[in-house]
Amino acid sequence: MSTLYRFCVALIAVIWAVSAQAAIDAYPFEDAAKEAQFRELINEIRCPKCQNQTISDSDAGLAKDLKDKTYEMVQQGASKQQVIDYMVQRYGDFVHYQPPIKQSTWVLWFGPFAFLLIAVVGVMIMIAKKRAPKAAAGQLTDAEKARLQELMKKDDSNS
């Protein structure tokens, strides 16, 4: 039993070590800051081929090409913004998961707040309406009370 257990632990350890090794080997870095920048970028750049995946998630050939390009640029000392600009120049705003604020993206950025505003205004109107009739019913002006009396008298005499 204990040998089987040990074997399993060893096997898992080996598989884990191999996969971890593979992940590191693909894009080796000596500079930790550059590596962090690279990881951040490949999780922000969207794969144009396989939409709704970052180039880090995707196994498409194009995603690999773009990762290679990102790696090359980061290794050469490009800033994060330079890499993003490079990609946007070629693939458009689509390629970046943080689209810029401009006229065509206003709906995207401000739409949710507009809906929130509409909802808040709507609720406020509803509350105001619920309160208003109660307040009015309790407080007739003297003229209104007199008119009410008159109408009720008329009604009595008619019947």
């Binding site: 144009p48 090409d65 773009l66 070629r90 458009g92």
Partner: peptide, 12 residues
């Protein structure tokens, strides 16, 4: 290598 294709924004 697909380098010119990247400069053209080719994705397929």
């Amino acid at each position: 290598e697909g380098t010119f294709a990247i400069d053209l924004g080719v994705y397929g």
